[in-house]
């Protein structure tokens, strides 16, 4: 196996082209290396993108927060801009694996590995992120739903395409986001459930809500029924409750011998949704937590 260290985006594309699709981009490698060892994934060449300066940047640009694809979860959760605009994203990044994992793993990787319960990717999913992708054809932007092809399967072919950065529109004053995690262990453990929400509240009512949940299907699953119903509804405990019940309409959790039965996950998903909405209302000082 070849291990190549790229110094620029152009060099990455060059390496990928040379390998003719048999290479894989490596950032943190916390999943990829294990998958290669266990034979789940194959790659003749690994292209290390962690030393490309532009991929490490976290900055505010024209109304967006831009997070470089090689920025680690630790760098993201500690970044003052992330903490200022998106505390829920910092929270999500902080719950992936353990500190040791977070020191090398990336947010981009958390999306591309496409595990349904990936905490950082979940927290990100409701922030209306745009993923900037580069390949031989050029540069394009993708939304969340275009990224997930299945359980643990991304639409992105990392033998051909490089994610360079994630752009997140900065929130307005009346907007906030939240992230809730139901867990058996704080570290080194996938969640039993996680729920992310973002909403705009005006005059005590929801203007719009983005609500996603996992692991209840492929990637971060949209609670579409709840989202639609919530528009224009008063911010109240009753509203949260109804939204929690509606979220079940789009959720199809499976039983896991360790992380909860289908029945348990269905019982607690509405609770997590309520708590996610309450967290937003609390942040915006509409309700007391």
């Amino acid at each position: 196996m070849k291990y190549l260290i790229a110094n620029s985006t152009a060099e990455v594309l060059e390496f990928l082209k040379e390998a003719g699709g048999t290479a894989s981009i490596l950032a943190g490698g916390t999943d990829l290396i294990l998958d290669i060892e266990s034979g789940k994934k194959k790659a003749d060449t690994l292209v290390d993108v962690t030393r490309i300066p532009e991929l490490k940047k976290i900055e505010e640009v024209d109304g967006f927060l831009e997070i470089g694809a090689a920025a680690t979860l630790t760098e993201i959760q500690k970044n003052p801009l992330v903490r200022k605009y998106f505390p829920s994203l910092a929270k999500g990044c902080k719950t992936v694996g353990s500190s040791l994992i977070q020191n090398v793993a990336t947010l981009a990787g958390n999306v591309i590995t496409a595990q349904p319960a990936a905490d950082a990717g979940m927290a990100l999913s409701v922030l209306d992120p745009r993923f900037v992708l580069v390949d031989e054809e050029g540069t394009r932007e993708c939304g969340v739903d275009e990224m997930y092809a299945g359980f643990g399967v991304s639409t992105l072919d990392s033998g051909r395409t490089l994610m360079t950065k994630i752009k997140i529109p900065l929130p307005n004053k009346n907007e906030a986001a939240s992230f809730q995690r139901l867990e058996l262990r704080k570290s080194l453990s996938l969640p039993m459930l996680n729920v992310a929400a973002m909403a705009s509240i005006k005059d005590g009512k929801f203007e719009w809500v983005r609500l996603r949940m996992a692991p209840v299907g492929k990637g971060p699953v949209r609670a579409a029924e709840a989202e639609e119903w919530l528009v224009g509804k008063e911010v109240s405990a009753e509203t949260f409750k109804k939204a929690g019940e509606l979220a079940l309409e789009n959720a199809n959790p499976r039983s896991n011998p360790l992380r909860g039965s289908k029945e348990y996950r269905e019982s607690t998903l509405p609770v997590m949704v309520r708590r996610a909405l309450l967290e937003i209302a609390t942040q915006l000082n509409v309700m007391e937590g």
Binding site: L184, R185, K186, S187, S189, P257, L258
Partner: peptide
Amino acid sequence: YNDSYHKYMLPTMD
């Protein structure tokens, strides 16, 4: 099912 630390919920310091 429990073939590793990942699949066995020993408490950690948290």
